[in-house]
Amino acid sequence: MNTNSNSYTIGYASIMVIIVAFLLAFVSSSLKEKQVENVKLDTKKQILSALNITDGDVASNYNEMVKDFVLNADGTLTEQSANDFKVDYSKEIKENRLHVFECNVNGEKKYLFPVRGAGLWGPIWGYVALNEDKNTVYGTYFGHEGETPGLGAEITKPFFSEQFKGKTVSKDGNVVLSVVKNGKVSDSSCEVDGISGGTITSKGVDAMLKESLSRYKSFLASAVATDANSGATKVEAAADSTAKCAAAKAVEANAAQASGKDGYGDFTAVEAAKANVDSIHQEVKDELKK
């Protein structure tokens, strides 16, 4: 058979392409489900890693501690079904679904945000967990697709991500958490060292934090409401201990209800509760004076 004739060459190429296409389609579709499961599990592992949990069973730890919410325009949160766990948060951000993960770590409430950005060679991503005050970093996780090993890729190492612990996220409504050139930290309350030799990746992390966390500005700003809430609790506790009046009890119930309604301080409700507490606190004081 003449393997150099035109018809043989064309026929060979066509058959090869069809066989290869079927083979790849078959492999891809038969393994799809398993791959998606793996990616989901890996995403959950990264989320847990940002919460400083690296041992134990990923799936059960995640189900136990983390709840997935989407931030609405009015600042309230809508819980997502656990079966509908998303892995592509850059798509979610693009389509304006801002996810907030509410986590319960050893009885303390933490908020966790996915952040997405670009490094030197490709996408980089991370998860930033904040304390209940929504302004102090509790833990972080960073990942990358193809940054240079030994340089940019070092952002995944604990020595880098652990620097963020305890840093302040925002001041006066602006995100101030930043990565600066190695050794050039001037404000240690909110700046961390970048990686020498990995300048563009470090800058990418910096831009990613600022860009992604700025989207949660309104949510982070409502930390004031939480402060007001805890302030209210303090005031009411004082009132309770000194006067033990029934009115304060009522307010406590009121405040509890307000915070119970959505847990992260619906601004108006808590503000109202605070005003309520203030007025009753005044009453209590007046009563004490008498």
Binding site: L23, N38, V39
Partner: peptide
């Protein structure tokens, strides 16, 4: 293999193998 498209055939074989191996790894050795 037809002589005139042998490089293309080689490339297709390599690319297919690499893709299959990477898909299998994604599923069983993430």
């Amino acid at each position: 293999i037809p002589n005139r498209i042998r490089i293309i055939v080689q490339l297709v074989v390599v690319a297919t193998l690499v893709t299959i191996v990477s898909e299998v790894l994604k599923a069983f050795a993430y």
